[in-house]
């Protein structure tokens, strides 16, 4: 290659670009949560199937889910699911700013409201499912 008088274009690696900044790695971690969220949706699907197959099938399924492999898988899913939730709620003021009168509500208020609702939903589900 020799000088050609034209502007120089720097190529960006389409496979490794996200290593160039920590903020891109944080972004990719957020995007990868979808694999585990999807996995959990599949677990729910299998749960429905076992439930539809009768008592023995369901109890065997629950046994599996609470075995060492099932617990490990679920713990990993839980970590990614919580990362999804926090990263989702933390950007709500950007996507849905609320203007009251002249001023916009501080972002913290909108985020806080989401966290409060998250806590309420979590407790409500646990209570209704008879976990207390």
């Amino acid at each position: 290659m020799s000088a050609n008088g034209k502007p120089y274009i720097r190529e960006v690696s389409r496979y490794r670009w996200y290593f160039s900044s920590p903020r891109y790695l944080r972004y990719m971690a957020r995007e990868v949560t979808c694999v585990f969220i999807g996995l959990h949706a599949l677990i729910l699907l299998v749960a429905l199937r076992r439930l539809s197959e009768g008592r023995d099938a369901w109890e065997a399924f629950l046994q599996n889910l609470t075995g060492p492999a099932g617990v490990l898988l679920q713990l990993v899913i839980l970590v990614f699911a919580v990362y999804h939730s926090t990263s989702w709620f933390n950007v709500t003021p950007k996507a849905m700013p609320v203007q009251v009168g002249e001023n916009f509500l501080p972002g913290g208020v909108i985020i806080g409201a989401h966290y409060a609702a998250w806590l309420a939903v979590t407790l409500a589900v646990l209570f209704l499912a008879g976990a207390f």
């Binding site: 000088a3 008088g5 120089y8 720097r10």
Partner: peptide, 10 residues
């Protein structure tokens, strides 16, 4: 640095 007249790359 990059000079399009003399440099193949920066």
């Amino acid at each position: 640095r990059f000079n399009p007249e003399t440099d193949a790359e920066p």
